[in-house]
Design a binder for these strands. Sequence first.
DNA 1: CTATTTCGTCATGGCCGTTTACAAATTAGT
DNA 2: ACTAATTTGTAAACGGCCATGACGAAATAG
Lengths: 402, 402
Amino acid sequence: MSAPLHEARPPGAGRPLPDTQQGMRRRNLARVMHAVSAEGSLSRAAVASRIGLTRAAVSTLVDELIRWGLVEELGPERPGRVGRPGSALAVSGRGPAGIGAEIGVDHLAVCAVDLRGTVRARAVRHAANRGRTPAPVIEELSELVRGVVAEAEREALWPAGLAVAVPGLVARDGRTVVHAPNLDWHDADLGTLLSGEWPLTVDNEANFGALAELWLGDGTPRDFLHVSAEIGIGAAVVVDGALLRGTRGFAGELGHVPVRPDGPPCPCGGRGCLEQYAGEEAVLRAAGLEPGGDLVGLLAERAERGDTSVRAALRDAGTALGIALTGAVNLLDPETVVLGGALAGLSPWLLPSLETELTSRTAGPPCPVTVSRLGPEGPLLGAAHSVVRGVLDDPAVVAERS
Amino acid sequence: MSAPLHEARPPGAGRPLPDTQQGMRRRNLARVMHAVSAEGSLSRAAVASRIGLTRAAVSTLVDELIRWGLVEELGPERPGRVGRPGSALAVSGRGPAGIGAEIGVDHLAVCAVDLRGTVRARAVRHAANRGRTPAPVIEELSELVRGVVAEAEREALWPAGLAVAVPGLVARDGRTVVHAPNLDWHDADLGTLLSGEWPLTVDNEANFGALAELWLGDGTPRDFLHVSAEIGIGAAVVVDGALLRGTRGFAGELGHVPVRPDGPPCPCGGRGCLEQYAGEEAVLRAAGLEPGGDLVGLLAERAERGDTSVRAALRDAGTALGIALTGAVNLLDPETVVLGGALAGLSPWLLPSLETELTSRTAGPPCPVTVSRLGPEGPLLGAAHSVVRGVLDDPAVVAERS
DNA sequence: CTATTTCGTCATGGCCGTTTACAAATTAGT
DNA sequence: ACTAATTTGTAAACGGCCATGACGAAATAG
């Protein structure tokens, strides 16, 4: 049961549980969890009116969640309103935690997030993973995970699952990395390497970044396009609060959308793909720089200083992004486009040309482009939170496991 | 309650009904309906094992559906298997019917479809609607509808709703036509014109065509891209068995995806949009033909005869389509791309160049391109069936209304 | 200090799917 | 032809779950 449960459904509403009374109970438990979690602190009566059940029903549901240690009673509220004050409920800060991990080209990172959504433990380590085989990388990552888990356990948390963000394409099984160009990994089954102490999910870092934006971003809508560039350019499509994964799990390959059909050939077999204009390598070449080191920081610094060739390179990349995004926006009609990952840091120099292109090519009100508040933290947080969402979506499973 | 209920959910599973026992009952009634409808004829025991309830529970559910006249008992089955034969159940061919209507540039069409999915009445009329204001067109359409409804009522059917397919952009409210270039309609609220004898839904013909493909097409997957061209080029994105509508309801505007960013200007404000290469007008111009009359038939006939300029025009259109679809396929990773509407008839001359472009620009196994079996019938059937699906999705509502 | 309002809980009741049992209807085997 | 085995559909008892209505508790308003 390591499949992500937070897929394409309104929070806490109908999951494909059998439509029997037990399933109904489980769904209602989830709805209570979501209501309390979303509001931070809520009385039983408030929960009841919010999810459409009676106070009596909510009482029994809350009792059960408290018995499982997922919800805590904070004591009486002190509102200015008339009537007996409610007793504030909050999601517990102890108990299950989501463990998120990130495999980057030059680093590994792990964090633990409790049900309230706060990061309770973390660890980062530099690591030149480019070209290393999966096994030693995973071994090193496991070490970090063990450390974070130990730290979390000292705070009365226990891992409910592990989610790993990788810079590459992941199959729909949520375990095997089909292709990670920067790591030079092919068809690596992380499921066997990270053998099963906890339920495991592996996904693209762009996907996790988009989920982080969805869950943690302020005011982010439920329909948007999240674009992030590390080395390749990945996008994640969020439709009605759920990721669009595609048949094989490869949706969001914005990097190979044709921008100029007769442009330079691309390793993918096409010509004039976006990556040939806005990919890291292409931008560095256009800016006259050599690859290596902290490339985003370098670019940002040079651009800040006024380096004209860097600025021109970023401007052209923005133009190409704008063209590719025009197609995507026409096709999907999202509420916004969010720039995340490395693009967030470079947005001051990308955005003008990007938006010019996008608005000039679109009739009617243009699709707003925003910059992610989370930046490079997104994928790691999204991974950890995906585990937490799994618990919120079906609190009954932790009762079976504890 | 004219909002389409068949949105983004597995058949008969969790709809946002309150998660109470009554809601559960309604969902299970829907699941029985879907099971029987999908299989044509099914015993109670087969339904039970299929939807995961017990035979006893299914018995009471079926009793209720029979009492409402939605399901009929056909009598004992005669299988070669051991054991008492089951009693065959089928969806009733009488009772509620879906009324579908289509407003084309040069015609109006209406049909009635019963719960079994068979067309029971239809009417078509030529009508030069280009440039006419909505009111008289709707008046003429209403006349047709009344005729079809009368015919249906003579067969013991009563209209459960009316769905209208229009060649243009429709707002998410499912009532107002925001922009229909071929008709020259702008912000026309069909809801007030087609005043409410029955629940009304208005939608883009491409969307209804895609739904028809989803529901009626043989072996069509739950994730695909349906491309149809009448005058503009519209696509409909189906994700997990549901239409992707977009924030404003404008998703699927494939016609304005940039194909050559420096190409000829387009009325939409962009340059080199797909429509400039594969739109009807562009193709006719490239083929050296004048607009007017049955254009698809004309093109097909000339191409069949071997007219080289027509064939070249269609080949180039296919190339442009292939480029635009490459972007879409990279972004969405659909299981297939389906060519519908006018494109279906022209596919012999479009497909080669389209597929060449698509496969050469995609790494890995190419996305298969198929041709719709429904062709120009799609939108009308999809509209009528959308009403039928609404009944299958919540059979309880008809009980309240009958 | 009383009336009013709201909150949480308890007892009751009704609804619904499950469980268990059984009769009916068919096939397989002798 | 007759029995055993299998499957179907239904009926009765059971248990779980939410709704209903009533009540005490705890606050505010006057």
